[in-house]
Design a protein around this nucleic acid. Structure first.
Lengths: 332, 332
DNA sequence: CTGAAAGCGCTTACAG
DNA sequence: CTGAAAGCGCTTACAG
């Protein structure tokens, strides 16, 4: 079992002190070019890399970010993670991903471990159970910035980066108006979620403001299966009208599409379909579903730059809302 | 910025030595019950937790597993990760997830960082570019076990845990035979991937052995879009026969289904559809697609127990194949 | 039963 | 320009 090379080994081989090696390797100006070159050559040869545990113990900094998400099965999070990783690489930080499984207890454990490992910062989408801000405030006391994204707490003074629920709902509603569709079945998620309230409220308002008498029926589904059931039971009474189905999320879209397929209906001939989505499910159908996209990668960029500002010392808490964009498929 | 409590702080407050505190906290038999109790009480109160960097520097062990996957957008990996996390928790290990983005260079960096962090072990699904075994052998030299899963190298003497490609292909072929379908369009992935060769070979063999003259046409697609294109161009000539489409993966299924929808065909009336899948895409359609499932969570359990055996000292390299199971939808 | 001491691998203020 | 020394927080063989 071979050991990794250390400063000491390099120092011994070159008959210099450990301090000198350490300095040479970080291009300290004091070191003579000659010595510096020799040391770096040998380090290269030996594939030296500092022991991160020793460095951290000494410097109290890990140059490592943690991303905590409730679940991995989510395109939105993938693109968020991807863009954080990309940015982090540029700044010389590494990224570790943790999954809370939407379990507040596991989330706590992860936070604790992040604290002990003195990560440089945490990006977190909280679980739906999370109601205690204390662990997060504790991170702050320890000087570890926390950026909440997507699923954020109610608590005011913290950094939050969210998708623009209102804006996405607005885009979808506008598209429906543009297509001049008079009847709309809006399928929304759990009415207790803030995201549901925001999307529903905006969606309804925009349609109403349009003046022309649109008929909007809204229903709530807590799961894909429920969305399927509801859609299935409602479709018969809508089939002879000109109408569209609006799905506020991918989960709901999946259920609704199953019901629509089951009834043998096809968009856009038999009905219009439009959704708010992270961008993968809509592409599985033909024609592709038109949707207002909530983009994780842009959110990631925003979150990252906020993080860097926190690390640089900004203690000012901020809520950033990212705007959505309409991706036109052929379903409406 | 508050500091985490240390052994020293506890020792000072209790007027004992650091050694005593350290021992008490790990229930060393030498410590008197009285002292032990006092120390543990204070530690509890102060929420003491050992600094993992110091521990590692001292002991050379991290009790942390790394999971490296090319991509996160994969149900199979989610369930694999989930089951590793579950097992690890039981044994007191933590798990960090890394994403190589299917980029061999990034994969190398991750491996290097795992080596320096002296993770206790690595579970890895390699990128499609990975061709150099050297970094993996190096892990071995450093005493870090590597368990390959799903995407594994050709290299013989290493630990591999794979889905049963042959078995999955067999199940799909048998279902086709059972349904008595004479014409089969088999859509496979990149012919250079071992997974493609294994699935194709078995699928073809089983169909041939069936005796009755089945007609199998096989094509290869490197992406979802390509699968769509190919399916689209071939469908016309098949439409007047009784036939089935077999998709060797989710990616291909997604493309093929788009073409099928585009042509206005519906399973099982107009054609049969069957796939090998991780289990999410088939559920988006109505009727649900029948598929041979490759289950990540069972693979995770197998990989984990192999890992524990490696840690316990087994140097015996082993290849484990997990069997598949048929999930019947209504598409064939 | 308890403590002093060495050492894991690094960084950095201090001295020369 | 270079080195000796202290110290980050822990563990553990050694001594008592």
């Amino acid at each position: 079992m071979r050991q990794n090379p250390t400063l000491k080994k390099i120092a011994e081989r070159l008959n210099v002190s450990i301090s000198t090696v350490s300095r040479a390797l970080k291009d300290h100006p004091d070191i003579s070019p000659e010595t510096g070159r020799k040391i770096k050559e040998l380090a290269e040869l030996l594939e030296y890399d500092p022991n991160p545990y020793a460095v951290n113990l000494r410097t109290h900094s890990s140059r490592e970010f943690a991303i905590v998400v409730p679940s991995l099965s989510n395109f939105f999070y993938h693109s968020f993670i991807g863009s954080i990783e990309e940015e982090a690489r540029i700044y010389g930080y590494s990224v570790v991903i943790y999954r809370s499984s939407n379990d507040a207890k596991i989330e706590q454990e992860i936070l604790k471990s992040c604290r002990h490992k003195r990560v440089s910062g945490i990006f977190i989408a909280i679980t739906s159970e999370t109601d205690d801000m204390e662990p997060f405030l504790k991170m702050d006391v320890h000087g570890i910035p926390v950026i909440f994204f997507d699923k954020v707490p109610q608590y005011e003074s913290c950094n939050k980066i969210c998708v623009g629920d209102e804006h996405a709902a607005l885009l979808a509603a506008e598209e429906i108006i543009r297509k001049d569709i008079p009847n709309i079945l809006g399928i929304f998620g759990d009415p207790n979620m803030s995201i549901t309230r925001a999307r529903l409220q905006k969606f309804a308002t925009v349609l109403q403001q349009n003046g022309s008498a649109v008929h909007l029926k809204t229903v709530h589904a807590r799961s894909s299966a429920e969305a399927e059931q509801i859609t299935l039971s409602l479709l018969p009474e809508w089939m002879d009208k000109k109408f569209a189905v609006f799905c506020m999320s991918d989960e709901i879209l999946a259920g609704a599409m199953k019901a629509i397929q089951r009834k043998g209906l096809r968009a856009p001939a038999d009905l219009g379909v439009i959704a708010i989505s992270d961008g993968m499910i809509p592409l599985l159908f033909y024609p592709e579903i038109t949707y207002a996209e909530t983009s994780g990668s842009k959110l990631g960029k925003l979150a990252f730059s906020r993080m860097m500002r926190c690390i640089a010392g900004s203690s000012f808490a901020q809520t950033i809302i990212d705007e959505s964009k309409l991706v036109v498929g052929g379903s409406i």
